[in-house]
Each structure stands twice: as C-alpha cells, then as structure tokens.
Design a binder for these strands. Structure first.
Lengths: 131, 131
DNA sequence: AGTAAAAACAATAATCATTCCTGTTTTTAA
DNA sequence: TTAAAAACAGGAATGATTATTGTTTTTACT
C-alpha cells in the first residue's frame, strides 16, 4: 500500500474542481490547470482524478455521454444533464431520495448506494431557443 | 432519411435480447448470435444495437462499468449492478419514482427523462461469500 | 543541510469499447 | 428480373482512459 505524497499538481486540480459549480471533464481540468502548470500532462490529470476519487475526496460522474465528469461534492445528490449542450449540473429534487433504499435488501440484493441522472433542456439552452 | 430494410441478423439480435432477463453487452450478444450466424461481425452487432436503440425498440444502459448494456424492456425502470460480479438486473423499488419529475421544471431546467442505478452485492454473490 | 528511498511527474505508448470505411451481398419495390 | 438502397463482413480508425519508462519531487532520517 503506497503512501501518498504531496503534489502541487494535485492541489491545483482539487482547487480548480472546488471552484466550479458545474462538473468538468478531465480535458477541461487539464486545460485549466495548464495555466498554472504549462508542462502538466493529461496523464497526471487522470492519475490524480482517479486517486482522489478512490480516496472519496471527489466523485466521478458517468452521465452517459461517454466522458467522465468530476464533482468536488461527494455527497449523494442527483445531477441534471442537458441534452442540447451536454452540461452537467446539480439538481434540487424535492421529495426524491433514492438514498432511502441504501442499506436495505431487495430480492436478496443488498443495496449499498445509488446514482440518479435527470435529462432535459437546461435553462440556458431554453433561453437560447428563440424567445 | 434512409428507410429500414429487414435483416436476419437484426432479428436474431432482437430475439436473443428478448430471451434474456439480464442486460448483456455487445460482446455477449455477439458471441451468442454467432451460433446462428458464424460470420456475423461485431460491427454489425453494434450497428444494429445502435439502430434499435435509436428506434426505441431496445434501451442502452450505461451503469458506469465502461461498457454499454442493452435491455429489451424500454419502459423506465431502475437497475441494480453488483459491485462484485458486475451483473446488471432489474430492481423492484417500491415507492421510488423518479418519473414523477419528468415533465416538470426545476430552476428553469425542463426535465424530460431520468435514469437510476442502484449498486451493491447481488443475491448470487452474497451466497457465494461463504455461508 | 545532505541523502536516499518512495512517490509523482512528463512524455508517450498501449488498451479497449465503439464507430467508420470499403467493397460485396441482401433486400425490396417496380 | 432487375437495379437502387440498405445491410453486411472485415478491418481500419477514433477517442477516452490507463500503463510504461526514465526523470524529478517529496520526505523521513541523518
């Protein structure tokens, strides 16, 4: 079990992710962190995102667009994906809690977690659709 | 808009998917349909699965294991993914209906659909874990 | 401060699911 | 029967992600 050593690049990645309310892809993280570390490699970005996700310091989202997105907020909460622009954002869903099933057993299956994605047209794209 | 012509391979793919209660990957469909069509190519399997999904005759599932799964049942229903063996199955979830949000608007976002995945340990793997 | 082992890095090659291309075979409407 | 359109098999290409390798940082211990 390798110990974990400090790295400036990893801190920059965390700081960037923390500063965003949307949920960027590795490529977006890469091009942002490049301002501070012009020589950082995409591999380093992926390695650190994976490490942080394994440590549960960030969450890896797979909304089905074929690209992983990353979220600084690791609490279980639903996401909204715009079918037009592909943006991924948090969604407030009153009275909707898949978490209530976590820890229960259904047909012999033990449930330990869940993930929910909502799809549709985001506010920005609705506005853009001629009005 | 190209019209759609009959194909024996496509019918075999549909029939196989219909016969399964789990949700196989393209590779699994491929090796199964190969019994009937030894020369079928993986590209043909993918092309037809994509075509059928576009026609909403089947559903494409992306439970986050990096591989697409396919479901003959296109009705909106939650799935369960075993963290141990990776199997994907249907899950009965009493009193849990993300669909109730479909058609509503939250913070300006128009919701048109949703997807829910539950994770845990399936009945078979639980049994297998020494008991 | 100096040093050496462990971890992280940059660069780049490899992997793997999926899609695309090309020349041939099926399907189908006339 | 025929000919255009669609589908096919085989294989190349794509693209996100992971693995490899030689070099640089980090850090615990002198």
């Amino acid at each position: 079990m390798p110990s974990i050593k400090y790295s400036r690049q990893r801190e920059a990645i965390k700081r960037f992710l923390q500063s965003r309310r949307d949920h960027p892809t590795a490529e977006v993280v890469y091009s942002a962190v490049r301002n501070e570390f012009p020589n950082i490699s995409l591999g380093t970005v992926y390695r650190n995102l994976t490490l942080l996700a394994d440590l549960h310091e960030i969450a890896r989202l797979r909304p089905g667009d074929g690209v992983d997105h990353f979220d600084y907020d690791t609490s279980a909460h639903p996401h909204f994906i715009c079918r037009e622009c592909g943006s991924v954002s948090d969604l407030k869903t009153p009275g909707f809690s898949p978490d209530s099933l976590t820890g229960t057993e259904i047909d012999g299956n033990l449930i330990t977690g869940s993930v929910s994605y909502f799809y549709g047209l985001c506010a920005a794209c609705r506005g853009r659709r001629l009005r």
